[in-house]
Design a protein around this nucleic acid. Structure first.
Lengths: 311, 311
DNA sequence: ATCAATTAGTTGACGGAGTCAATGAATCGA
DNA sequence: TCGATTCATTGACTCCGTCAACTAATTGAT
């Protein structure tokens, strides 16, 4: 968990280095195919056909980035060898839907197995924990570079789980340090608040929400009991990468709804005036500024604000 | 932050999916070269020559995984075009050391620039934070798959930084939940201890150490002041992926050294009997078991142990 | 309903990227 | 010293993949 400070150039060089590295890596991995009766591209086509039904030639051209003429000839050869069947589609007489024949599957199976075994051997050289890191890193690369189909559900809210309060402490500590220069005592405060919250947690009166997006924690908020009539909204935060999705407003809404349902009379919160985007959310939700006071905390001179919402 | 549970097959499939994905990705990236007067392989060779001095043909064959005959012809063509110079080496009359001529550098420059710009465009589509994630993930893949020159310094110790206590809380909470089934109150305890520690931190009497390996936190430990004569070692932990490097013992040693230097008479610690690997470290360091008591904590019936070391 | 523009697929012609095997020369090693 | 290995070159060849021209079906704009 270090804070790298990459200039654009360093990042670009790092990506280019990775491309060179993986070009080589793929070259090694592809040697498996060369032993077989199929060329690398033929193998790629077979793979696609084995894993997707009803593909047309144009799909292969698009998905694998190949030349149409080459694919045409390649499929013709496959058909002659009895590896694939082509059937014209009813909807579009130009397209034909291609499928592996049993013989095609039989020819593909050993290829597939070899490739599988080769990757297994590659992974076996790594400790299980490293295998996991590898897979996760690859998935990250793929997610970032691939065409992200904007997640249908942009985010979900869920209750707290083990690991959450540490993670929230970590992220909030870093974010406020980076953005506002707050020192480590802010992180310490978050840790204490959350530790205390979990230890004395009473689901009747209190609750925490985690906003999660594609498996990553991207925000959170807590309602804590201040007195029988007053609930306190605390530690609202949304990851910079997930802003603009309305997560902050949604989290505040949940707090308001919960507080009302539990019979609190007032929902209060404490924040600092420099946190502008949070303030806008509170205002939009109907909170009124009740009090302001200067204070020195987290290594900075700040202006604290108390906001209240009558429920 | 989800807990993935990969069987071997899933991991293998994930790696293969990544290979297919990146094969395609590289295909797209390589289109830059195709516009130029050089083939992809020629461009790769030029890149190597531009970035390393005194290469021999055999080095190119090895590093880029090419056919010797092909490289020979390729270099011959380059030489004819005046792009490279070949000079026989004194040490070995078979080898010749290859270098780009000024004309060669001039021919390579635009290629290199195009590639650079292309990657820049790729990165510009991502938010800065995502660029950072991408670079980090690529580096992880490269480190894991490349011939790892086992890091000369397998780990370093450093003082606490912002973000650490949250991270430690997060990791300890997850690890003990996964391995021993402890509930969220353990994570809460860690959060409170660390929050309190930072808030009341007195460098004269207390200290924390972070073990870091290749930029990742892999362990930590704290010495806290219990009384004028007694120091307490707390929250020792080492990531499973970093065990066997002696990090745990080293962290305990640091604690002992610090406590001695500060004039404490006793170093004490509290642990649970199920934590076997930690116990072995304490015993090896000279700690003596002083007390045992049953207790119910973290959702489990446990046997707590107090160990002491007279300094 | 019509016609231009687009898309799916085919075919011929071609180039040259990359492979394979044989060879010579220098070096290493037991 | 002599066989084995390494570096580099060359001839011969394959076939992968590109490019352009073409047909046929479909789409879409008017």
């Amino acid at each position: 968990m270090t804070i790298h400070d990459h200039s654009g150039k360093e990042r670009i060089d790092a990506v280019r280095a990775f491309n060179r590295f993986y070009t080589r890596q793929i070259g090694v991995l592809d040697e498996v195919w060369l032993k077989s009766a199929f060329s690398l591209t033929e193998a790629r086509v077979l793979y696609e056909l084995a894993h997707h039904d009803g593909l047309a030639a144009s799909d292969l051209v698009r998905d694998l980035g190949l030349d149409p003429g080459y694919v045409s000839r390649l499929l013709k050869k496959f058909e002659e060898r009895g590896l694939v069947d082509r059937a014209a589609t009813e909807a579009d007489a130009r397209r034909s839907s291609i499928a592996l024949t049993p013989a095609g599957r039989e020819a593909f199976a050993p290829l597939n197995k070899d490739s599988h075994e080769q990757v297994r051997a590659l992974l076996d050289r790594l400790a299980p924990a490293d295998q996991e890191r590898l897979v996760k890193a690859m998935r990250t690369v793929q997610d970032l570079l691939g065409d992200k189909p904007e997640p249908k559900v942009p985010y979900i809210l869920r209750p707290l789980r083990v690991g959450d309060i540490g993670w929230i402490t970590h992220r909030q500590g870093l974010l406020y340090a980076q953005n506002y220069g707050w020192d480590e005592t802010y992180e310490a405060l978050v840790a204490e608040i959350l530790g205390e919250f979990v230890k004395t947690f009473n689901p009747q009166w209190e609750r925490g929400w985690i906003a999660e997006r594609e498996g990553e924690v991207v925000g959170s908020v807590f309602v804590m009991r201040k007195s029988a009539e007053v609930a306190k909204l605390r530690l609202l935060y949304v990851e910079p990468s997930a802003r603009g999705l309305g997560i902050g407003a949604r989290l505040v809404d949940e707090c308001i709804g919960f507080s009302r349902a539990k019979g609190y009379k007032t929902l209060t919160l404490w924040t600092n005036d420099i946190l502008g985007s949070a303030r806008r959310i509170y205002q939009a939700a109907g909170f009124k500024l009740a009090e302001e006071e200067r204070h020195h905390s987290f290594g900075k001179d700040l202006v604290g604000q108390t906001w209240n919402l009558e429920l």
